[in-house]
Design a protein around this nucleic acid. Structure first.
Length: 597
RNA sequence: GGAGCUGUGGUGUAGACGGUUAACAUGUCGGCCUGUCACGCCGGAGCUCGCGGGUUCAAGUCCCGUCAGCUCCGCCA
């Protein structure tokens, strides 16, 4: 068996001087000086400089002249200390170099399409098409290693807390509610389909009925919805569920996990417990159910003052059950009229009917709407807003939720540029159990249909369903929803009642969820759990904007893999086996794209 | 489903008021060079401007369409 290496390239140090080393790796760069060639050899541990001297071995030297970028070689040589003048402080191995005595070319390489180095500025298209080269770059390797380390910490932590890692099926059944499913046709049952799991939700609940008590899984999940920088059609969740384990237990468990991750991978000591905020407070103060607490600019209610002014839009909103809310943008008075108009366009995109503004100046207000306010009212407004000279104040007058949402968006848009690089965790609690979907003209679960309502709100299920609060919570970090969890329903009758509220008939309940409803009749323990987005979590830890950076083989915004070409048409025979016929509209296109056989 | 941005040698960019041979850097190939480390010097090759159509005497440049990538809205229990 050949010996490929005695050390990693990047691990050699001055203390290794005098030793013989065998190294294997990729040619990063060749510097040919005529009678002397330097090669930077790279493996995943780093770079080391190899030296080929023509006066030492002319045959070996001649072979070194043929080396090119990304050739894979194995070398043997002596680790020697560099003379002080030749030390390269920019390189971790810069105090030594390897005088090569033997070299084997393991595999040549075509000229790489882009540089295998960090801080690459190249089209993401190309990176994705040649992802294996992209991943060869040290910063990408570091991301993979980082993700591995974080995942391992999660596994060890949950193991230490008595959680069992258990796999659940990837081929399962489509259920109503939630995201669009990825479907997999069944050959054995023509016309029937599996669905890839949106989450292992039902299985983990059934594991609780099984008496597992504590389950977790690093679970791949699938949702056939449009992509974003932080959304891929397949993604990974840290999924867990526990029985006889209240919300306080779960909060403490997750806080411990976050503290561990930040300590181990970032060296940051998190303060626990994390603050908590009811959903309604988050909406009122930040216009968001996942507020970024790294800066202020909170929403302020001015409805009472608006009622006294002469501005019809404000008064109308106030008198017709709506609100007038405001945010103060410190120093925003410097904005030009054009910039403010652009804000109004943005706000309109978020559903605002208009965007009123005022600029505080020494001794007064500059604003198109100031004339509708009396001096005294302006004075009270200034106090309410704590406005200082040079501040810009933006108003939204609308129904409560709409006004809050619009200002919440504006708040994020106008957030200070240099936000502190500090994690601000938050539990958002007391979400409403249900929302009304005007399109479908029915209630939909705000979280999912298995979330338990708060005990004291159960009577409201009949009288005022929208007022029912859920035993549900989101973990939010710096404006990003990291995950959400809940205590689940574990009683058949209550589960049935919720399904009915969601518009499912009894027959549908039996058909789609009969197994769950039945399971609840065999001594289902109270249970609950949470799922955290691992991709988002890792991206936050690495400081990446897009989760594509921490996923080795991600899809594009068009849900395609540029490397493999997935998705792709399949042979007619494959479709026939599955009893699938293509629509005429797509038929020609699909067969046209089929590779020649 | 909608909106915006981007697409020019292998790679990253310039060219955009329409007008000779599409420029620069880097890479690549050849030559020279024994201390470089983004090595240096000399020389060469390489793009028809994402694709299709249109306007024009003339299109990388203007117009329409289309494809791909990115970002956002809708969507994502």
């Amino acid at each position: 068996m050949p010996l490929y290496r005695t050390a990693g390239c990047g691990t050699l140090r001055r203390s290794d001087a005098g030793c013989t080393a065998v190294l294997s790796g990729w040619v990063q760069r060749r510097r040919d000086h005529g009678g002397l060639i330097f090669i930077d050899l790279r493996d995943r541990s780093g770079l080391v400089q190899l030296v080929f001297d023509s006066s030492a071995d002319s045959a070996l030297f001649a072979r070194a002249e043929k080396l090119r970028s990304e050739y894979v070689i194995k070398v043997e040589g002596e680790v020697v200390e560099r003379t002080p003048a030749n030390v390269n402080p920019a390189l971790e191995t810069g105090e030594i170099e390897v005088q090569v005595t033997a070299m084997e070319l393991l595999n040549p390489s075509r000229t790489p399409l882009f540089y295998i180095e960090d801080n690459l500025n190249v089209d993401e298209n190309l990176r994705l098409q040649y992802r294996y080269l992209d991943l060869r770059r040290p910063e990408m390797y570091r991301r993979l290693a980082f993700r591995h380390r974080a995942t391992k910490l999660v596994r060890d932590y949950l193991d230490a807390h008595g959680f069992l890692e258990i796999e659940t099926p990837m081929l399962t059944r489509s259920t109503p509610e939630g995201a669009r499913d990825y479907l997999v046709p069944s050959r054995v049952h023509p016309g029937s389909f599996y669905a890839l799991p949106q989450s292992p939700q039902l299985f983990k609940q059934l594991l609780m009925v099984s008496g597992v008590e504590r389950y977790f899984q690093i679970a791949r999940c699938f949702r056939d919805e449009d992509l974003r920088a932080d959304r891929q059609p397949e993604f990974t969740q840290i999924d867990l569920e526990a029985s006889f384990f209240g919300m306080e237990n779960l909060f403490a468990l997750m806080e411990g996990l976050m503290a561990l991750l930040w300590r181990e991978v970032k060296g940051i000591a998190l303060q626990t417990p994390f603050p908590r905020m009811p959903y309604h407070e988050a909406m009122e103060r930040f216009g968001s159910d996942k507020p970024d607490l790294r800066f202020g600019m909170e929403l302020l209610d001015c409805t009472d003052l608006a009622r006294e002014c002469e501005f019809k839009i404000f008064r109308g909103a106030a008198e017709e059950g709506g609100v007038v809310k405001a945010i103060r943008v410190p120093g925003g008075g410097r904005m030009s009229r054009k910039e403010i108009d652009e804000l109004a366009v943005l706000a309109a995109g978020w559903g605002a009917k208009g965007l009123a503004w005022m600029i505080r100046e020494d001794g007064g207000w500059r604003s198109p709407i100031a004339k509708f306010f009396s001096e005294a009212l302006l004075e009270r407004l200034g106090q309410r807003l704590q406005a200082e000279s040079g501040d810009l104040v933006l108003f939204a007058a609308d129904q409560r939720e709409q006004a809050c949402r619009i200002l919440g968006q504006l708040r994020l848009h106008l957030a200070p540029r240099d936000l502190p690089d500090q994690p601000r965790f938050l539990w958002v609690t007391d979400f409403p159990l249900l929302e009304y979907d005007p399109e479908e003209q029915r209630y939909v679960a705000q979280h999912h249909p298995f979330t338990a309502p708060r005990e004291e709100d159960i009577p409201l299920l009949d009288s005022d369903p929208l007022a029912v609060r859920a035993q549900c919570y989101d973990l939010v970090l710096n404006g990003v929803e990291l995950g959400s969890g809940s205590n689940r329903i574990h009683q058949r009758d209550l589960q049935m009642k919720i399904f009915e509220l969601l518009g499912l008939s009894e027959a549908e309940c039996q058909d789609k969820f009969g197994f769950l409803l039945e399971a609840f009749q065999y001594g289902a323990p109270p249970h609950g759990g949470i799922a955290l987005g691992l991709d988002r979590l890792v991206a936050l830890l690495t400081g990446d904007e897009s989760i594509r950076q921490v996923i080795p083989f991600p899809k594009t915004a068009g849900a395609a893999c540029l490397m493999t070409g997935a998705p792709a048409p399949v042979a007619p025979q494959q479709l026939k086996e599955l009893s699938i016929a293509l629509d005429d509209k797509v038929k020609d296109k699909a067969s046209g794209e089929l590779p020649a056989e």
